[in-house]
Amino acid sequence: MATADDFKLIRDIHSTGGRRQVFGSREQKPFEDLVDLGWLKRSSVDSRATHYQITERGTSAAL
């Protein structure tokens, strides 16, 4: 179930172009929650960072 923080984060991601790069596993937790909701997808993972991209469902949630 989505929380107020989830909606705040997806709106922030949407307003800044729909993509986010995250460093460190602790910082990934809120983004992984949005992946579980179907609002974000992991577009790539490298040794230092994970890249996320907003989905259509995420765009709808952000509006």
Rank of each mutant, 00 (worst) to 15 (best):
Met1Phe: 13
Met1Asp: 09
Met1His: 13
Met1Glu: 12
Ala2Cys: 07
Ala2Asn: 04
Thr3His: 06
Thr3Gly: 06
Thr3Tyr: 05
Ala4Phe: 10
Ala4Arg: 10
Asp5Ala: 13
Asp5Val: 07
Asp5Arg: 10
Asp6Phe: 06
Asp6Ala: 11
Asp6Asn: 13
Asp6Gly: 05
Phe7Asp: 02
Phe7His: 05
Phe7Gln: 04
Lys8Thr: 09
Lys8Gly: 06
Lys8Trp: 11
Lys8Val: 09
Lys8Glu: 10
Leu9Trp: 03
Leu9Ala: 03
Leu9Gln: 03
Leu9Val: 03
Leu9His: 03
Ile10Pro: 01
Ile10Asp: 00
Ile10Trp: 01
Ile10Lys: 00
Arg11Ser: 07
Arg11His: 07
Arg11Asn: 05
Asp12Phe: 10
Asp12Lys: 09
Asp12Glu: 14
Ile13Lys: 00
Ile13Val: 07
Ile13Met: 04
Ile13Asn: 00
Ile13Leu: 05
His14Trp: 14
Ser15Asn: 13
Ser15Gly: 09
Ser15Pro: 00
Thr16Glu: 09
Thr16Ala: 11
Thr16Ser: 12
Thr16Phe: 06
Thr16Asn: 11
Thr16Met: 09
Gly17Thr: 04
Gly17Arg: 04
Gly18Val: 02
Gly18Gln: 02
Gly18Ala: 02
Gly18Ile: 02
Gly18His: 02
Arg19Trp: 14
Arg19Met: 12
Arg19Asn: 11
Arg19Thr: 13
Arg19Val: 13
Arg20Asn: 03
Gln21Phe: 10
Gln21Arg: 13
Gln21Lys: 14
Gln21Pro: 06
Val22Ala: 07
Phe23Val: 13
Gly24Ala: 08
Gly24Arg: 09
Ser25Asp: 14
Ser25Lys: 13
Ser25Glu: 15
Ser25His: 12
Glu27Cys: 15
Glu27Ser: 10
Glu27Arg: 11
Glu27Lys: 11
Gln28Ile: 09
Gln28Gly: 06
Gln28Thr: 10
Lys29Thr: 06
Lys29Asn: 05
Lys29His: 06
Pro30Val: 07
Pro30Arg: 10
Pro30Gln: 08
Pro30Thr: 05
Pro30Asn: 06
Pro30Lys: 09
Phe31Glu: 02
Phe31His: 03
Glu32Asn: 09
Glu32Trp: 05
Glu32His: 06
Asp33Gln: 14
Asp33His: 15
Asp33Glu: 08
Leu34Cys: 04
Leu34Thr: 00
Leu34Asn: 01
Leu34Tyr: 01
Val35Asn: 02
Val35Gly: 02
Val35Phe: 03
Asp36Ser: 14
Asp36Thr: 14
Leu37Tyr: 05
Leu37Thr: 02
Leu37Ile: 06
Leu37Met: 07
Gly38Trp: 03
Gly38Val: 02
Gly38Ala: 04
Trp39Gln: 00
Leu40Pro: 00
Leu40Ile: 05
Lys41Phe: 15
Lys41Met: 14
Lys41Trp: 13
Lys41Arg: 13
Lys41Thr: 15
Arg42Thr: 06
Arg42Glu: 04
Ser43Leu: 15
Ser43Ala: 14
Ser44Cys: 14
Ser44Gln: 13
Ser44Phe: 15
Ser44Glu: 11
Ser44Arg: 14
Val45Leu: 07
Val45Lys: 10
Asp46Lys: 06
Asp46Ser: 12
Asp46Tyr: 04
Ser47Pro: 11
Ser47Asn: 11
Arg48Cys: 13
Arg48Val: 14
Arg48Lys: 13
Ala49Met: 12
Ala49Ser: 15
Ala49Gln: 08
Ala49Pro: 06
Thr50Lys: 07
Thr50Ile: 14
His51Arg: 09
His51Lys: 08
His51Gly: 07
His51Val: 15
His51Ile: 15
His51Phe: 13
Tyr52Pro: 00
Tyr52Gln: 00
Tyr52Lys: 01
Tyr52Arg: 01
Tyr52Ala: 01
Gln53Val: 14
Gln53Cys: 09
Ile54Met: 05
Ile54Asp: 01
Thr55Trp: 00
Thr55Pro: 00
Thr55Asn: 03
Thr55Gln: 02
Thr55Ser: 04
Thr55Ile: 02
Glu56Met: 09
Glu56Ile: 09
Arg57Val: 11
Arg57Glu: 14
Arg57Gly: 07
Arg57Leu: 15
Gly58Leu: 00
Gly58Val: 01
Gly58Arg: 01
Gly58Ile: 01
Thr59Gln: 09
Thr59Glu: 09
Thr59Gly: 04
Thr59Cys: 11
Ser60Gln: 15
Ser60Trp: 14
Ser60Val: 14
Ser60Phe: 14
Ser60Tyr: 13
Ser60Gly: 08
Ala61Glu: 04
Ala62Leu: 04
Leu63Lys: 08
Leu63Ala: 06
